[in-house]
């Protein structure tokens, strides 16, 4: 299967197979006017299967969102058809307005205008806790 290469934009590579739609949703890629290609289950020597997203426009990417969903993703910046930069994402220490606390007793449940802040509490288990009420949110979707 062939997908045209892009001239100016971003390629998100090494996405764990099956997570590309989560990224599409969390990065609000549906709001873009340009071409966006989601390529699922691409064969990979390293990962077995992987997903790739190609975005045919230069844009700011929220690295915290990417790191939260899958910290193995690489972000390739393409200019004039050439790879000019390759960035690796990390598990973010803090998430702001990416996920919401599900504890009905949390102040953010009754005052939704507050920033939803989560802090990384366990790097190995990828566990985040609500900064307000300490309720845990596992990284997995």
């Amino acid at each position: 299967m062939n997908i045209d290469s892009i001239q100016n934009g971003i390629v998100l590579d090494h996405i764990q197979a099956g997570k590309s739609m989560d990224i599409y949703q969390y990065l609000h890629l549906d709001e873009l006017d340009c071409s966006v290609a989601i390529i699922k289950n691409v064969r990979s020597n390293h990962m077995g299967k992987k997903d790739i997203i190609k975005i045919d426009t230069p844009m700011e990417v929220d690295f915290d969102v990417l790191g939260y969903i899958d910290s193995n993703i690489t972000v390739n910046i393409i200019r004039d058809g050439r790879l000019v930069e390759k960035k690796h994402v990390e598990l973010p220490k803090k998430l702001v307005n990416i996920i919401r606390c599900k504890n009905p007793r949390c102040i953010t449940a009754s005052e939704p205008q507050l920033d939803a802040i989560f802090l990384l509490s366990d790097e190995e288990k990828h566990t985040y806790r609500c900064a307000y009420c300490d309720t845990a949110k596992d990284k997995k979707f």
Binding site: R105, I107, T108, A109, L114, D134
Partner: peptide, 10 residues
């Protein structure tokens, strides 16, 4: 004192 968890943090 507040009945909602995290209100003092807010």
């Amino acid at each position: 004192r507040h009945p909602k968890e995290g209100a003092p943090f807010a």
